[in-house]
């Protein structure tokens, strides 16, 4: 295989010089892949994405060990705007749009050095093709959008700067299943038409496994499992803990805990 677009090696992230949120994560994403990251709340998914997209001073977080390479260049611990300019765009989990700007203005914000105006306009038009609804809403204040529209705007705003790697944090957070399905289909379409690599963070395994080519499962800041769609969907742990299909053997809560702990270790 060729060199991956993004490769993370033995990454460790520490908050406030005290709280280790991510420990020894190694993963990679090939050009044009959709890579899923699964994990429950607090597993360290957002932390991982922030490490890739650059920490902000207020987070008080640092990559203390390991490396992150994007297109062969190391990018850990550099400022977010420089990372963004090098071709990584993030759709954050919570504050994803500028609430007081209109939809159109939100799309104007991203800085894209090297894109001449005409090219940028073309990119914008192309992005809006994926989300025709945004065109109707262009004069609306972004703070007034619904959850689904907001997510669309966030993805669109991330795409106008013509990134090579798109990071999506919790695509399905707070959205109705139909909307999620629709958005997931758009992501697949976007990947196909723009050739973008997508790193998709999800709590909902069903969503991620459906569209991801390859997935990693995160628990307590470590990768405990990884594999392609077929391997993971058929894996008994995934079926039991993430897809909710009980195998009927382990019943008591205590057994489950015991079991999970044992799994964590061979990650």
């Amino acid at each position: 295989m060729s060199e991956p677009l993004l490769s993370v090696d033995k990454l460790e992230v520490v908050y406030q010089r005290a709280i280790t949120a991510v420990q020894g994560i190694t993963l990679s994403a090939q050009q044009g892949q959709i890579v899923g990251i699964l994990g429950t709340n607090g597993a360290g998914k957002t932390t991982l994405l922030r490490a890739i997209s650059g920490f902000h001073g207020t987070d008080d977080a640092r990559v203390t060990e390991g490396t992150i390479r994007f297109k062969g260049r190391r990018i850990e611990n550099i400022e977010p705007h420089r990372i963004a300019r090098s071709g990584i765009a993030l759709v954050p989990e919570r504050e994803k749009v500028f609430p007081n700007l209109t939809v159109a203005e939100n799309l104007l914000v991203p800085a894209a050095p090297g894109l001449v105006l005409a090219e940028r306009k073309r990119q914008e038009a192309q992005v809006l093709q994926f989300f025709p609804k945004l065109e109707e809403l262009h004069a609306r204040t972004a703070g007034l959008l619904s959850g689904g529209e907001r997510q669309m705007l966030a993805i669109a705003a991330a795409l106008v700067a013509k990134p090579e790697l798109l990071l999506v944090d919790e695509l399905s957070l707070g959205l109705a299943p139909v909307v999620v399905e629709d958005l997931a289909a758009r992501l697949v379409q976007i990947r196909r038409e723009l050739g973008i690599t997508v790193l998709l963070v999800e709590q909902s395994a069903a969503v991620a496994l459906e569209i991801a080519d390859y997935s990693y499962v995160l628990e307590n800041g470590r990768i405990v499992l990884d594999g392609d769609r077929a391997r993971l969907t058929n894996h008994p742990d995934i079926q039991e803990f993430y897809l909710g299909q009980s195998s009927g053997k382990r019943r008591s809560y205590r057994d489950v805990k015991q079991y999970r702990r044992s799994r964590r270790w061979y990650g």
């Binding site: 650059g54 705007h81 765009a89 749009v97 700007l101 203005e105």
Partner: peptide, 24 residues
């Protein structure tokens, strides 16, 4: 101006602005 819009954006959500490639 584009810079004007960016200034407004940075005022609303500095973190997101940085992630959108704006040098805060």
């Amino acid at each position: 101006g584009r810079w004007g819009i960016r200034m407004r954006a940075a005022g609303q959500s500095p973190l997101l602005a940085a992630q959108r490639g704006i040098n805060l």
